[in-house]
Every structure is written in C-alpha cells, then in structure tokens.
Write a protein that binds this DNA or RNA. Structure first.
Lengths: 192, 192
DNA sequence: GCACAAGTATACCGATCTGTCTATTATAAC
DNA sequence: GTTATAATAGACAGATCGGTATACTTGTGC
C-alpha cells in the first residue's frame, strides 16, 4: 500500500476519534488500533502526536469548507442563501451530514478549548478555519449586497448565529437551534 | 483552618487552572501545588478528580450567573437591557471582569468538548448552566415583552448572539465580537 | 489535658501515555 | 532477481497520571 494511503488512513481515523472523544482523551495507541497501522508507520509520517493533530485540523478544515461550500452554493438571492445555510447546519446538527461524523459541536472550538496558550500552533490553525468560514460568507454575499457596511453587518450576523447555534445545539442539546436561528437572519435581511 | 476553607481553596484553584489550560491538561498534583494543600486532604473532600471537576463546574456556574445577573440588572427597557448585556460580554472578552479570570471562552463549552459521551454527568452539568442563562434572559424579558412568541424569539436571539460572540472572540480572536453583536440585537428589538 | 479529627509531606502502586528500538516481512523500482 | 524502502508487531523506556498508604503534626471540643 502506498505511503499516502497509510497517512490518509491515520488522519481520517484520528480525526474521527479526536472529534468524538476530544484530543487528550484519545491516545496514540487507540488511533493505531482503529487505523490498523503500526506505530512505527505513524512516526514515519508524523514527527509527533502534535503533528498528527495539526494534520487532522487541516483535514477537517478542508472537509468542512468543501461540504459547506456545496451546501451554500446557491446564492441567487439573500433569502435562498440564508435558507440553504441554516438547512445545512440543521442537517449537521441532526446527523444528516455523514461527511462530518456524528455531531459533537465544532471541532475547532473543541480543540482550541484543550490548548490554553494563544500562541500554540494548534490554536492558530483553529483560528484559520474560522477565518476561512468568514471569507466564504463574504464571497457569497459580495454579489448580493453592494453596500459594504451592510454586507459586513450581515456577515457578522451570520458568523455569530452560526457559532451560536452550533454551540447551543452541542452544549444545551437544542437540536432546533438552526431552525430557530433561520428566521432571525431572514428578519435582518428583510430590512435591507 | 476549617474544612470548608480547604475545600473552597481547592475548588477555586482547580477552577482557575482548568479554565486556563483545559481539564485533561491539568493534573491533580498541579492543583495541589497551586492550592498549597496535601493530596490526602483533597481526597478527603472529593472522591475523585471527577468529583472535583463537578464541584468546579457548579462553582463556575454560580459565579458566572451572579456576575451576569448583576451586570444585567437594569431591565428598565429593552434597549437598556441589551446595552448592558453586551457591554458585560465585552468587558469579559477584553479582560475587564476579574471575577471571571483571563478570558478563555466559555468554560462550559470547553469542558463539554473534553467529554464525548452525552450521558456523562459533567456534560449534563454544562447543559444545566446554559439552561440557567436562558432562564435568566426569560426572567428579565418577562416584564418587557408581553407577547410570548416575540419574547421567546428575542430570548433565542440573545442566546445565539451571546454564544456566538463568546466563541468568535475565543477561537477567532475577534475581541470586538460583543460590540459587533450589540447593534444586531438592537436592530431586532427596534421592530418590536 | 486528652482524644479525635483533619492536614501535611511524601513514598508508593498500577495504569497509561508518548515515543524509541529491534527484528521481521512485504512491496516496489530498476 | 536484487536491493532499498516501508510496513508490521511488539517489547521497552521514561515520564506522568490518578489514587492509596504511612507516619507525623496541627488544631479543636469537651
């Protein structure tokens, strides 16, 4: 089997375990057992557990952005875009998005929580993901709202509502959070 | 020194460490060194590390609710209430609320992230805190909005914006999140 | 002043963690 | 076919973890 395959196996299985249980709760040996890969192979591909974690964050970032971009593709109007956005979140929250695994909140929020130091590389990568999301919103809203102030305002609202409903769904167990958030966003765009 | 004092010392120091570094990143010995308490004393008060963690969650819940209640005391009008609410969050995010420690996001979100199983007692306690926050909002909005549908709608918006700006501030490093969120909430109440 | 409860300091136990090392087998390139 | 690379399984090291046990000291109530 090619090297890249083993590496990918490791990243995918590690990501699934880290997301389901948290980073510190999962040991290297558990990752190896789940992946069916020898320990030496892991350390041939990654210098340390930290390097594996970083690869998992990057993988999750790419996977989430890909999924989210597909689901929010249609920006033919503000109403349509917002509709699709919160429908996507609702599907994720209620485990109808298998690409993202069983819903356990935001992987980046969860991971950042386990690393106190702001300077840590891992926390920086988590921050990068949120910036990617913001840029995605900005890109999709660009053709829909000409006025920059209004556009930035809606971008901020969508960021806040997205983060809010993911965390309310996860910690409060409010599985209706995305459905609740949707009309709050549409009420805002109706004024534009 | 009285028993209660030692117990309180342990909870306060453990809470500070857990919040700053994450639960699994802090060992019992570190808590003991920071508290200046012997190991046997800890296990005289708590059956296990898990029991100490639970006590920390309850302590944080009480402390946060107390602080938040004080800061959002004035509900003479919707505008005033919202103003105070987001000013309080802004103070916390920018480390002007010493009672809450150096800002590291929501302790309950962070803690829940480290426990994958939904059935775990710790995750249940985190959920309880969010319910306490929601009830606080409902109580303060009760005399201000008579229509239940509108009141529930604003409660939901405030919950989502609060969670949203705490997590955007923490993970994205957007220290202006609360200031950004405020006008989004006031835009909503202007319609009522 | 005595007895008992509680705290201190520290050694220790078994488990688990990350990471290394050895020895062997499979695979791919030429 | 030979050779170099990569994978395997697993023992092992060194550190750290949560939790227990021991021996001693302090403090409090009657």
């Amino acid at each position: 089997m090619k090297q890249i395959d083993k590496r990918q196996q490791l990243v995918e299985n590690a990501l699934a375990l880290f997301y389901a249980k948290g980073i510190h709760a999962v040991g290297i040996n558990e990752v190896l057992a789940q992946s069916g890969v020898a320990k030496k192979t892991l350390y041939n591909h990654f210098a340390s557990k930290e390097a594996l974690i970083q690869a998992c964050i990057i993988e999750r970032d790419q996977r989430f952005i890909t999924w989210f971009t597909q689901r929010c593709h249609d920006n033919s109007s503000l109403a349509v875009f917002v509709e699709h956005l919160f429908n996507a979140l609702d599907d994720w929250i209620n485990d109808r998005a298998i690409e993202l695994g069983e819903f356990k909140g935001c992987f980046f929020v969860n991971t950042a929580a386990e690393y106190g130091e702001h300077t840590s590389e891992i926390k920086q990568l988590c921050m990068q993901h949120k910036i990617h999301i913001k840029k995605l919103f900005e890109k999709k809203l660009q053709p829909l709202i000409k006025d920059k102030v209004q556009r930035d305002s809606l971008t901020a609202l969508l960021m806040l509502l997205k983060e809010g409903c993911i965390n309310c769904a996860h910690v409060m167990g409010d599985k209706q959070a995305a459905i609740t958030a949707k009309p709050l966003a549409t009420a805002f765009i109706d004024k534009i």
